[in-house]
Write a protein that binds this DNA or RNA. Structure first.
Lengths: 210, 210
DNA sequence: CGGTGGTTTGATCAAAATCAAGTGAGGTGG
DNA sequence: CCACCTCACTTGATTTTGATCAAACCACCG
């Protein structure tokens, strides 16, 4: 079952117990949590081909929200159906398991990003990651892609304030590393970006298995 | 195959391709990454019963280090053996998959912790989490347990400087929330700690499935 | 046109980092 | 047995990074 969703639409909310998973067919989505005091943290950004709530197949209650960033086309797959397949086809189960493990690897890198890198590096790392992932699924080059996030969204992804995000972007622009305007990224100096970002794509586990 | 390891022993290192998983039988271990500029970030802390490198069964190259914190007893399980079991017993595969998904849920919470919570809340959250998890496996109460980490280790887990960790601990001590000395934690005011921490154990997914 | 949401700018403030010394408890070797 | 070393913890002073506050600015839109 395929559905069109507008930007900022909640797909699943923390506390819910979904009976289906959501395959992102078109558009961008993100997972997030909000603290006590109303501060939001984005946990991951998702692109077409991702199943951002695949974990709900085994973890019955959502511990975070899943929201669209842009207009999205999503396909819903019933847990029952998925479970039938995975029980009969262990290799498919393993492939899906692997997907969730890559997800976890990205979370780990985000912990490092937010915990130990200064603001500019955080920003650079985030951009580099999204570019790499889009490139891997053939949706863009690593140097040029759409990114339908406001500076406020990026702030929530990077654990920074929106004002500071704005300043970091300007700094990266001024130093000729990248352009970043209205939902679109152009990387001018990829090697430099990677260096600022301390980026190593190992954690994306994109190389063919084994 | 069971092995005794001293504190600070590397179990697996980033870049390696292990052929076995490690079940922690006794002691504490942690996963970590180190940036460019030599800053370490601890990604998770592991207690007896955990299989901290279970992901290596499907993700062939380690994207982080796994190290002991205290003296540990670890059992190694060959990937081959594990794979045989999981292919024949889908329910076991699912249980292991579920474990890795809880792992991921903890990573998500750590992103929030490090990205959006002030230092005292970070500390409190970390302590609350470890207590809860130890309690769940019957190794301690949530109020009183051993925690073989130096303040430097905690700094690396929380994305803070060691000096600041020290000050935060003193503040929590002074306000009667907890004692924290020489590898041992005593929580004096658990409700208050939970409140400071903005702690909700939902993300640990400890309640019986479904 | 006026509203609204996102971006930009400047000024000020606060949290946490860094720097620099000291303290103190084990552990080791002379 | 004691001097000494090391490592963790502590303290104070200072600096830095990034947050907050407040106000424009600017497009796009109904």
């Amino acid at each position: 079952m395929v559905k069109e969703l507008p930007p900022q639409a909640v797909i699943v909310r923390e506390g819910e117990k979904p009976t289906q998973c959501c395959l992102l067919v078109e558009g961008f989505a993100c997972r997030s949590k909000t603290t006590d005091v109303g501060k939001r943290q984005i946990l991951s950004v998702h692109i077409p081909g991702d199943i951002p709530d695949l974990q709900s197949l085994q973890l019955h209650v959502m511990d975070h929200d899943l929201t669209t960033l842009s207009r999205c086309k999503v396909a819903f797959i019933a847990h029952d159906a998925l479970r039938t397949v995975t029980r009969e086809q262990p290799l498919i189960a393993e492939a899906l398991w692997r997907e969730t493990l890559i997800d976890a690897a990205v979370f780990r890198e985000w912990i490092v990003n937010v915990g130990r890198r200064p603001a500019a590096a955080r920003m650079a790392h985030f951009i580099a990651e999204v570019g790499k992932r889009l490139e891997a699924v053939g949706l863009a080059t690593a140097e040029q892609f759409e990114l339908p996030m406001t500076q406020i969204d990026m702030a929530d992804a990077l654990g920074l304030s929106p004002v500071h995000v704005n300043r970091v972007i300007q700094e990266l622009r001024r130093s000729g590393v990248l352009e970043l305007r209205k939902y679109s990224v152009s990387i001018r100096d990829l090697p430099r970006l990677m260096e600022i970002a301390d980026f190593d794509d190992l954690y994306l586990h994109q190389s063919a298995a084994l």
